[in-house]
């Protein structure tokens, strides 16, 4: 493992200053559960790590009537252990509770999961269902980036050099809502998904679907929403026909491919299977 400097700034401004001074050879790090594995394998060889763990407040969860704000360093376990989140944002709770092992969830952060930008990121699929917005701070000031536009490719995000993710705002859906996340795996723990599927349906007072979200992991180069499937669900009562049409559309639109973890035909088939199954289970 190549030698590097390890910085532990105490404020966001200090972290931004370090990143500006150190340039592209510095890597921001939170829980380090991904970064450290990549350091060990040599995939990552930075001159410096800038840890966000000592910045007060970044690990917090802020709950209000409008929604949840997750500090970028909030861990998966913090979400897993939160009954408020389990009740109001169940798909996020399901996704965070199934990442790695308890040891990994105790340290690995939701913000890191997003910045790592893996196509398989469990929390990302769930957060796409809830129209999450990323708070980004950088040398030029702060900005909000909808999660829908945050992922640019495998391992690539909308973060500009020197910028860091500081928080994730997750609105609680208004109106009667069901949502779920299914992580398709060979075994129950310590697994990346063969496929991740998330669905949210919000109904208006008349029982019609006013808002629908369908999101997929490992079905393209990034976690993605499926606009066609969402359109198929929305606009009328939640009928079996609507659900089947959405599942069919999502399966057709998905950019699945063969990998050692699963084949494209299987992933496509399971999108068709899991979308109705998630809604039946809600």
């Amino acid at each position: 493992m190549a030698r590097f400097a390890y910085h532990r700034p105490a404020t966001v401004d200090e972290a931004l200053g370090l990143l500006a001074d150190l340039g592209p050879d510095a890597v921001p790090v939170a829980g380090a559960t991904d970064v450290w594995v990549n350091l060990r394998s040599g995939k990552l060889a930075p001159r410096a790590l800038v840890s966000l763990r000592a910045v007060p407040g970044l690990a917090g969860l802020d709950r209000s009537d409008d929604g949840l704000t997750l500090g970028a360093c909030a861990t998966h376990a913090a979400v897993e252990d939160d009954s408020w989140i389990a009740g109001r944002l169940p798909a996020l709770h399901m996704a965070c509770s199934q990442v790695g092992s308890r040891q990994v969830r105790n340290v690995g952060t939701v913000g890191g999961n997003l910045c790592n930008a893996a196509p398989s990121a469990d929390a990302a699929v769930a957060l796409l269902l809830y129209d999450a917005v990323c708070r980004v701070e950088g040398p030029g000031g702060g900005r909000d980036v909808p999660l829908d536009g945050f992922f640019l490719g495998p391992g690539r995000t909308a973060l500009a050099p020197g910028e860091i993710l500081t928080g994730i705002r997750v609105p609680v859906p208004r109106g009667r809502t069901v949502a779920g996340y299914h992580k398709l795996t060979r075994r129950k723990a310590m697994e990346l998904p063969i496929l991740g599927v998330g669905v949210r349906v919000t109904l208006d007072d008349g029982g019609a679907v006013s808002e629908a979200r369908v999101a997929l992991g490992v079905a393209g180069p990034t976690p993605v929403r499926c606009p066609g499937a969402e359109a198929a669900l929305a606009g009328g009562p939640l009928t079996a026909e609507r659900v089947e049409a959405a599942a069919e559309t999502a399966a057709r639109e998905a950019r699945v491919r063969d990998s050692w973890r699963g084949q494209a035909w299987y992933r496509r088939h399971m999108i068709r299977v899991l979308i109705p199954r998630i809604l039946l289970g809600c």
């Binding site: 390890y6 532990r8 380090a32 559960t33 450290w36 594995v37 790590l49 840890s51 763990r53 376990a77 790695g100 092992s101 308890r102 040891q103 990994v104 105790n106 340290v107 310590m190």
Partner: peptide, 24 residues
Amino acid sequence: GECGACTVIVDGRAVNACLFPAVE
């Protein structure tokens, strides 16, 4: 971080000590 043989408890939580930067 796959096998858990290095598990220790840090501030009440089980962690993989093999992925935990010592300075943290």
